[in-house]
Amino acid sequence: MVSEYDFWLLDLDGTLVDVEWSYTRGVFDRVGDRLGHEFSDREAEIIWNGLTGSRDYQLREWGIDPGAFWDAFHAEEDPLVRAEQTYLHDDAAFVADLDEPVGLVTHCQEFLCEPVLDELDIHDWFDAKLCCTEQTGWKPDPAPVEYVMNELGVGYNGHQGVLAGDGACDVGAAWNAGIDAIHVERIGHERRGRCVLGDYRVQSFDELEFPQ
Rank of each mutant, 00 (worst) to 15 (best):
A75M: 14
R192I: 15
V31M: 08
S22R: 15
G14P: 03
V145G: 05
E61A: 09
G172K: 04
L163G: 07
P79M: 00
I122M: 13
F73Q: 03
A93I: 08
A168Q: 12
Y200H: 11
P66F: 14
A181H: 02
L112D: 01
D29Y: 08
Q203G: 15
A83K: 02
K139T: 07
G158M: 10
E77D: 04
E84Q: 15
R191W: 03
R201Q: 10
Y200G: 05
A164F: 04
L98H: 07
D99G: 15
Q160L: 09
S3D: 11
R55T: 10
A96M: 05
D41Y: 09
R42S: 15
W70I: 07
D90G: 05
V102Q: 02
P66C: 08
E146N: 13
L88P: 04
C169T: 14
A143M: 13
D166K: 06
A177L: 06
E151G: 10
N49F: 10
R186M: 07
V31H: 01
P115I: 02
A75P: 03
H74D: 12
G14N: 01
C108T: 13
E110L: 09
Y200R: 06
I64T: 04
M149G: 12
H89E: 07
E114G: 06
A92V: 00
R30N: 12
S22Q: 13
N49I: 00
P140W: 01
F7V: 02
V27A: 04
K129E: 15
L51F: 04
L98Y: 05
G167E: 09
D56K: 13
R34A: 14
L117W: 12
H107P: 03
K129V: 01
D65Y: 05
E4V: 10
D206N: 11
E76G: 02
L12R: 00
A93L: 14
G50R: 01
V196L: 15
L130P: 00
G155R: 10
H159P: 00
T106L: 00
I187A: 09
Q212E: 13
D13I: 05
A96Q: 10
F126A: 03
Y200T: 07
V184W: 11
E20Y: 12
C113P: 00
G53V: 14
D170A: 02
G158Q: 11
E190R: 04
A177K: 05
L112Q: 04
G178A: 07
S54L: 06
H123C: 14
L16Q: 08
E146Y: 03
V145Q: 04
L80R: 12
Q58Y: 15
W70R: 06
L152I: 01
W125A: 07
Q203D: 12
D90M: 03
A72S: 13
P79D: 07
D33Q: 11
Y5F: 13
I64A: 00
L117S: 03
V184P: 10
T86L: 07
H123S: 14
D33E: 15
V105G: 01
C131D: 01
R30I: 05
W8P: 08
L16D: 03
W125F: 08
V154T: 13
D71G: 12
D206C: 03
D141C: 05
W125P: 08
W125L: 11
C108M: 15
H189L: 15
E100M: 12
I122N: 00
H37Y: 15
I182S: 07
Q109C: 06
W48H: 10
T106N: 06
G32P: 03
Y200W: 13
V19S: 12
V171L: 04
I187R: 10
M1Q: 12
G167N: 11
E151N: 09
